[in-house]
Amino acid sequence: METTIIGPGGVGLALASCLHVSGVDLSFLGRQHPPNPLFTTEGIHRSGIFGRAAVPPESLLFHSTWRSLADQSPDYLLICSKADALEEIGRGLQSAWPHFDSEPIVILCQNGWGHFEKMTQWLPAKRIYNARVITGFKRAAANRVEVTVHADAIHIGSLADAPLAPVRPLVEAISAGGIPCRASPEIEADLIAKLLYNCLLNPLGALAQVPYGTLGEREETRLLMESLASEIFAVLEATGRETHWPSAEAYLDSFYRELLPPTAEHHSSMLQDLTAQRPTEIESLNGAIVRMGAEKGIPTPVNHALRTLIRAAESRPPAEPQ
């Protein structure tokens, strides 16, 4: 089984470590050519709550072009980049697609909503699967990732009702390599669950610069999160999206009792992006809710306000050195 990871960030590094442990042949494609020297001298290192794993440099192959990727013709393509890179990746894969020996399975690992629909502009819908990742990662260096928190297994499934059998070997390899993973027939509801979780926590955690648990302890941020949930459920009902909960109240009960405690010490990846002056995923999160709400005439003022504040923070000039 050959797998290519596009976008060797925190998620990509962690999945690579799992797949190597399971004996999967790995390759990478990223924006940096040649790759960071740390990959070619030290390999990949994973630490954290699922233990240590390493991928030696000689086990890493880096593609420099889409045609080079097609010539290898991997079984799976794991797209682990940020959402803002999806158009570039989609167009690149479209150019390479006729040259694959057989059509690979594409797995989208981004937070948020709308990525499947975007990718179908360039690739066949039945070859695209989504992954719901509700695990926290922290990169100490370009080639090192720490698994910091874990709320549930990675779920992989199809929004196009494609069969799950083709992804089961990948799911089993990831699980055997150290991070729980399973094929899901309810991937839409799974993705919506992650969307809810991210919309409530990511922007507030980034703006307040506090861990998730603190947001749940403070009355003012609880009120904001509850308003966000109410708006999101109104949009989901209007658009006919599937969820695991019948109402915002039922979701919030589960959120405070089951979902928030395991990640209470986690800091928002959006805060990490703002600190590093990288684009955030706000348009795929609260921005997606605002757009869906506008299409159905559902007001989403709190989601809109957070989206506006994060976009303002993204455009903030770098701090002057002290």
Rank of each mutant, 00 (worst) to 15 (best):
L61Q: 13
F62G: 03
F62K: 04
S64M: 01
W66N: 11
R67Y: 03
R67A: 09
L69M: 03
A70Y: 00
D71G: 09
Q72C: 07
Q72E: 12
Q72T: 12
S73P: 08
S73H: 08
S73A: 12
P74A: 04
P74E: 05
P74F: 02
D75V: 01
Y76K: 11
Y76F: 15
L78T: 02
C80K: 04
S81A: 14
S81P: 03
K82E: 07
A83V: 09
A83S: 11
D84G: 09
A85K: 05
A85L: 04
L86D: 10
L86S: 05
L86N: 15
E88K: 03
R91Y: 05
G92W: 03
G92F: 05
S95P: 02
A96S: 11
P98F: 12
H99P: 06
F100A: 03
D101F: 02
D101N: 05
E103Q: 15
I107S: 02
L108V: 08
L108H: 13
C109V: 00
Q110C: 10
N111W: 04
N111Y: 10
N111D: 07
N111E: 05
N111G: 09
N111T: 11
G114F: 15
H115P: 07
H115C: 08
H115A: 14
F116M: 07
F116D: 10
F116C: 05
E117N: 10
E117K: 08
K118P: 06
K118R: 15
T120Q: 15
T120S: 07
W122M: 06
L123G: 03
P124H: 05
P124I: 07
P124F: 02
A125L: 09
R127D: 08
I128K: 01
Y129P: 06
N130D: 09
R132E: 10
V133N: 00
V133Q: 00
I134F: 14
T135K: 13
T135Y: 14
G136L: 10
F137A: 04
K138N: 12
R139F: 01
R139I: 01
A140P: 08
A141K: 14
A141N: 12
A142R: 03
A142F: 05
V145I: 02
V147F: 00
V149D: 07
V149Y: 06
A151D: 08
A151M: 11
A153Y: 04
I154T: 09
I154P: 11
I154Q: 05
H155M: 12
H155D: 12
H155K: 15
H155W: 14
H155C: 13
G157V: 01
S158R: 03
S158A: 09
L159I: 03
A160E: 01
A160L: 05
